[in-house]
Design a binder for these strands. Structure first.
Length: 969
DNA sequence: GCAAGGACGTA
DNA sequence: GTACGTCCTTGCA
């Protein structure tokens, strides 16, 4: 935690005198200090990174009027000339600037800014924060702490000096000759002519420091004044003892100002374009507008100058104070007002712009490329899409790049279109007239890596991965797919659906150009001209969608979700995918052979038992044999009228003495493992890296979980002996070791927190076996010596609760009657009454709102909550009970993943995060470093909910290291 | 050649 | 009873 306190009044005074900024805006209003102030706020957010990056921030101003110091020394600051008019007019504007940056602006009558700063600084330090005070005011140096927990930062621009100058213990000592805790004693003696602090005449800083270093403080010095050898100095001290005491009171900052906003209220919130740009426009700050537009990913042309500010001479304070601004941010937006109205207007504007394919440009010369580079720099943002030879980001090669800077424009830069090979033996070579790929990459790289230029894409993870292989680390990004996911969940998805829904536009289908099926052409085989229309359209449409979706974040209170759980995760996932994981081909190949033989034996046995040959892989044929030919009782039909032959049915039959059923179950298990894993996985080993690279989908799961595909590495077997053999084929690279770190019972812990179940919370607090505890509560059985079946039942019920329990489902799971299952549920609700309240609340909410919410504010949409179909309604009810639990757990691990890399780097730990399996993270670390790595990983994972949410249950992570995934798990 | 259904791997 | 992705068969184009 890091609190940044900006001495606002101090800044403008010093900036004005250090380097008078006389800039005026077009109507003559002086705004130089405001501009400097805005630049400073911008620089602070830009330059303070890593450990120095503040989590909390406020700007403090002096209030008008007298302070408590005037009560005991009316001459305090009495000699100060009034501030010049061109500075006075900028006071209210700096407060407006602070609000425009979404930073709390604080001033209190009766107190100086310094006192408020001292109060917050001390409170924060006691709460374990690091504190930085942005000021060079010597009066604040008394607050500096020797351990570095409170430091000053001087940002006033001075020619020939670095822009940021830290003031710590050493700097204070240089200035005052004493440690910070004795600064007030030195000031008490030497006084301050500017503030009219009297001090002791004839004593300057050097003498004061010498005396204080000798005597400790003012009181002790005065008590021993008669011992001073120099007669003049002795006399002055004795004569001015009272003045020294008053001076000390004057310079001592109060640390108990009754501040209104608690520390928590100073937590940083993302800047809001709708607050920022109207202000910057009114001030006519073009450069900073452009830079912030890039940083924020917003189009400033969509905002009008704030009319209150644009007309000079008015007091901007009357229109907004902090509490109002905060309330606006926090409360749901009413359609037709504020940000919501803005979003609607932008949507209408963008939707009205026609798509004209003739406006798109094919870039084939360096001059054309230059024009586009200038456009991008000028705009501060660009929509980008890459066309490649395939869908696998780790294997596909770049074929072309499309860019768009305004809705309606767009270009395509072909770099890899190939001539069709005349024969199989002959290389096709590149189509003539394309710019060399190296030239294009080199030209784009500086812009794509420039932190002040926003790169907008649809599924940018793909672009990040592709470009990474050409040496480009693309950042920062905005992603229309993730914007849509943050706003509307999974209901829309791909670019074409979004375009259709928000723009009423149908994009060119890829299949129209390339055909379908196994004869589908890859992008490099397409003619450039039609490919360009398709490609440039994607960039243009992506940019339009961004214009439509981005303003909705603020209007619909989804900014925090997007900024903290979606946007920062994409590059993390890209890196995980790029790393891949090592898989031992030999192990899989050996297992394939083994499974194949054993499956063949089961197949022969099944044919024998059935008395006929049939396809074991056909549920249809199997059902007919079991229930028609053999005439077994108790068969049920699926919804399509076929016999049900699922594992549970066969398991049942096996228990009733049907050996064929057991054989089929065993056969299915083996062929599943063979087909899905041992045969399929080796084909995913990348030729370039020798590793398997999955692809994570960040925006396709209802609850906020990730999903994994091509291959799915989130369902690698673990439950059976044979399955674990497959898992053991996932190995560490030579010299490395794998670490698996998984959250223990995360969903039950989340449930205990959100449903506020004291008994569950207590059990987690005490580290009890949660299922045994549940069983003990429900069945009145002591935990000691509990039969395993009793615990098993309780475990099923706990899981059932998470899944939105029904008597029907629980009965199925436990193989008991509906009535008995109903009794269990009733007992559970009696023992843990909060659970029923939680469930009822979710059921109620989903019907009213159409969504339920995780603890981090993710909305999970259920459009069918009020369906006319009772079965569907019940389904939605169960899902809406499950979603906040599963979703909150998903949000927690997302937060851990986002923080993991910087945290490990800061702890100097070399660990590569490779995989995520919902509640588990897999890392690869150098052999011998696993103990330190596991400790650091656990810390990040266990603290991942904070500070956004303080869970009322402990979060526990178990970590293990081993050479392969099976042993590490 | 493609979509749907069934089955089954994971959390 | 929740949330996924993949493999295989089937049935229709």
């Amino acid at each position: 935690m890091h609190l940044l306190l900006v001495d606002g009044s101090g800044y403008i005074f010093r900036a004005f005198h250090a380097l008078p900024q006389l800039n005026r805006k077009s109507d003559g209003l002086p705004v130089g200090c405001v501009q400097g102030f805005c630049n400073m706020l911008f620089k602070l957010t830009e330059d303070l990174k890593g450990e120095d990056q503040p989590t909390h921030m406020a700007v403090i101003f002096d209030a008008k009027g007298k302070t408590f110091r005037d009560d005991f020394y009316p001459e305090y600051k009495a000699h100060r000339p009034p501030a010049p008019e061109e500075l006075v007019t900028q006071f209210p504007l700096t407060r407006a600037a602070t609000r425009a940056f979404s930073i709390p602006s604080i001033e209190m009558e009766g107190w100086e800014a310094d006192d408020i700063i001292a109060t917050y600084a001390c409170n924060a330090r006691q709460a374990g924060y690091k504190v930085t005070i942005v000021s060079s005011d010597k009066d604040l140096m008394q607050l500096v702490e020797p351990d570095g927990s409170i430091r000053l930062l001087d940002t006033i621009p001075r020619p020939g000096q670095p822009p940021l100058r830290w003031i710590g213990m050493d700097e204070v000592f240089t200035k005052f000759g004493v440690t910070p805790d004795k600064v007030i004693d030195v000031q008490a003696l030497c006084g301050d002519s500017v503030d009219n602090v009297p001090g002791v005449p004839g004593i300057g800083v050097k003498t004061a420091a010498e005396l204080i270093n000798q005597y400790g403080d003012v009181e002790n010095l005065l008590a021993h004044a008669h011992e001073i050898k120099q007669p003049a100095r002795r006399q002055k001290l004795i004569d001015n003892a009272e003045m020294a005491r008053i001076s000390k009171r004057l310079v001592t900052l109060s640390q108990d100002v009754p501040v209104e906003l608690p520390l928590d209220a100073l937590a940083r919130v993302p800047m809001a374009p709708e607050a920022l740009f109207p202000f910057l426009k009114a001030m006519e700050f073009a450069t900073i507008t452009k830079r912030l537009a890039g940083l924020l990913g917003a189009d400033p042309t969509l905002y009008e100058a704030d009319p209150e500010l644009a007309a000079s001479g008015r007091d901007p304070r009357k229109s907004a104070d902090l509490s109002v601004a905060r309330a606006k941010l926090a409360s749901p937006q009413v359609p037709g007002t504020g940000p919501a109205l803005h979003a609607q207007e932008v949507h209408a504007k963008i939707r009205a712009i026609p798509v004209n394919y003739d406006d798109y440009e094919i870039v084939t010369t360096p001059e054309q490329l230059d024009v586009w580079l200038k456009r991008i720099i000028d705009k501060g943002h660009v929509a980008i899409d890459t066309e490649t030879t395939g869908l696998d980001a780790q294997a596909a090669d770049l074929v072309g790049i499309c860019l768009a800077t305004e809705p309606g424009n767009g270009c395509y830069i072909p770099v890899g279109h190939s001539r069709g090979a005349a024969s199989l033996l002959e290389e096709g070579g590149l189509v003539e007239g394309q710019l060399p790929i190296r030239l294009v990459i080199d030209a784009l790289k500086p812009l794509l890596e420039d932190k002040s230029i926003l790169k907008i894409g649809q599924n940018t993870k793909y672009e990040i991965s592709i470009l990474a292989r050409y040496g480009i680390t693309m950042a920062p990004i905005d992603d229309t797919m993730l914007l849509s996911y943050a706003l509307d969940g999974v209901q829309y998805n791909g670019l074409n659906v979004l375009a259709d829904n928000w723009l009423g536009h149908t994009c060119i289908a890829f299949s129209d150009l390339a055909g379908t099926g196994k004869h589908q052409k890859t992008f490099d085989q397409l003619e450039i001209a039609p490919a360009a229309r398709y490609a440039a359209e994607d960039a243009d449409i992506t940019l339009r969608l961004w214009h439509v979706l981005k303003p909705r974040l603020a209007a619909e209170n989804a900014t925090t979700l997007y900024e903290t759980l979606e946007r920062p995760l994409a590059p993390v996932l890209s890196r995980m995918e790029q790393r891949g994981i090592s898989v031992d081909r030999q192990i899989l190949s050996r297992l394939s052979g083994e499974f194949s033989q054993r499956a063949a034996a089961f197949e022969a046995e099944a044919h024998e038992l059935a008395g006929q040959s049939f396809n074991l892989g056909s549920p249809k044929q199997l059902g007919e044999i079991l229930f028609d030919k053999m005439g077994l009782e108790g068969g049920t039909k699926t919804k399509t009228g076929a016999w049900a032959t699922g594992a549970d049915v066969l398991e049942d039959l096996a228990l009733k003495g049907v050996p064929l059923a057991r054989t089929i179950v065993d056969w299915r298990q083996l062929t599943k493992l063979k087909g899905t894993y041992t045969d399929a996985l080796p084909a995913y080993i990348n030729a370039r890296t020798g590793r398997v690279h999955t692809s994570y989908s960040q925006a396709s799961v209802l609850t906020g979980r990730l999903s994994s595909n091509d291959p799915n590495l989130q369902n690698i077997p673990v439950r059976t002996e044979d399955g674990r053999k497959i898992r053991s084929a996932f190995v560490a690279a030579p010299g490395k070791i794998l670490i698996s770190a998984d959250y223990s019972q995360i969903e039950l812990r989340v449930l205990a927190h959100i449903a506020d179940i004291q008994a569950l919370k207590d059990a987690f607090e005490e580290g009890l076996d949660i299922h045994a505890m549940t069983a003990s509560e429900m069945f009145n059985v002591p935990v000691e010596g509990m039969p395993s079946d009793v615990r098993r039942r309780a475990k099923a019920i706990n899981f059932g609760i998470i899944y939105g329990i029904s008597a029907f489902g629980l009965a199925n799971q436990l193989g008991i009657g509906r009535g008995e299952a109903g009794d269990y549920i009733k007992t559970y609700f009696e023992r843990f009454p909060g659970i029923k309240d939680y469930m009822d609340e979710q059921r109620r909410r989903v019907k009213i709102d159409g969504h339920v919410t995780t603890i981090f504010g993710r909305k999970v949409q259920f459009p069918n909550a009020n369906s006319a179909n009772p079965a569907e309604r019940s389904f939605v009810e169960r899902a809406s009970i499950n979603a906040p639990i599963q979703g909150s757990a998903a949000d927690i691990i997302r937060r851990a993943m986002i923080r993991m890399e910087p945290a490990l780097k800061q702890a100097n730990i070399d660990a590569d995060m490779l995989l995520q399996v919902h509640d588990e993270l897999i890392f690869e670390v150098p052999l011998g470093t696993e103990t330190a790595a596991m400790a650091a990983i656990k810390t990040v994972m266990e603290g991942a909910a904070e500070p956004a949410v303080r869970l009322s249950v402990p979060i526990q992570v178990d970590a293990h290291a081993a050479h392969n995934w099976d042993e590490a798990h």
